[in-house]
């Protein structure tokens, strides 16, 4: 039974696209048949993060409007053969998406794949609503910052009211993915504590992804971090999150600041 998963947040720049690519690749690397769908029509990025930008011919809008067949628009990843991308259009805007078209495309994708991962645009408007519309599972990407947490709260409210599942009176499964977690700033109490974020949003935690050079580097060379540097802390956190999505029980690892011997010697300063 295929699962439709939306990666959403409300706020921009928190790591939705990076997380979509990393989780999609991690699930595909474990043998699942995965498609990642870019719903950010007009501001597409997922093709860049996936390193497929030079292979885009047809896009989601072409398929939604019936100008191209789904198979013509899907781009199969060169590194993991069970991973595909359905890119967004860069030249159109969100108004080109129609509810009927999206429903048909998501329905077709359900038949072909085990996981349909929808990368939502930021905001709470049409694009974001259509991206979450048919989801069975939501991954709410949140940074440990007050603005991000409040926007995530707003999105959770919409997941509970504006999705097909919610309208049928069913519950949509929601998970919190805490990203850009900076252990050094956490140690200095400059970020919201994980417990506080969990208390405010009251949805289960899927994982904590540390802010890391590897994530940025992977984005720049067009590879999901789980493919590019699978042994990095961020990639391991994404692998664990993917296993939890499949229903496995995996202990949550809180990223810690690694301090060398010098750090230990001079780590405390008398103010």
């Amino acid at each position: 039974m295929a699962k439709v998963l939306v990666v959403t947040s409300g706020k921009g720049g928190v790591g939705k696209t990076t997380s979509t690519a990393a989780l999609g690749a991690a699930l595909a690397q474990s043998g699942e048949n995965v498609v990642v769908v870019d719903f950010d029509v007009g501001l597409r990025n997922l093709d860049l993060i996936m390193g497929s930008e030079r292979r885009v011919v047809y896009d989601l809008i072409n398929v939604v409007q019936g100008d191209a067949k789904l198979n013509q628009a899907l781009i199969r990843d060169k590194r993991v053969e069970t991973l595909s991308l359905l890119p967004a259009s860069q030249t159109r805007d969100k108004d080109a998406l129609t509810p009927e078209g999206v429903e048909r495309v998501v329905g077709e994708l359900r038949e072909k794949f085990d996981w349909v991962i929808c990368d939502s645009p930021a905001g709470i408007e049409k694009g974001a609503l259509l991206a979450m519309r048919h989801a069975d599972v939501a991954v709410v990407v949140t940074n440990p910052e007050v603005s991000s947490v409040r926007d995530s709260d707003r999105i959770i409210g919409m997941l509970d009211s504006k999705t097909v599942k919610a309208e049928k009176g069913e519950r949509i499964e929601k998970h919190l993915l805490l990203t850009r977690y900076d252990p050094a700033r956490a140690a200095r109490s400059e970020m919201l504590k994980t417990d506080d974020v969990l208390e405010i949003l009251s949805i289960p935690l899927l994982g904590i992804i540390p802010e890391s050079e590897e994530v940025l580097r992977a984005s720049n060379i067009g590879a999901p971090v789980t493919l590019n540097s699978p042994s990095s802390a961020a990639a391991r956190a994404y692998f664990d999150a993917a296993r939890r999505l499949k229903g496995e029980k995996v202990e949550i690892v809180v990223p810690l600041q690694r301090t060398g011997i010098i750090g230990k010697l001079f780590g405390r300063r008398v103010a």
Binding site: V146, R150, D151, D153, R154, G157, M158, D160, I200
Partner: peptide, 24 residues
């Protein structure tokens, strides 16, 4: 009660078992 949500009940008391978020 999530951010952006509004609960209006003119007829009497409202009891919320969970939290009322910032912006709700």
């Amino acid at each position: 009660v999530r951010s952006g949500q509004s609960i209006v009940f003119e007829r009497g008391d409202v009891t919320v078992l969970g939290s009322v978020a910032s912006g709700a």
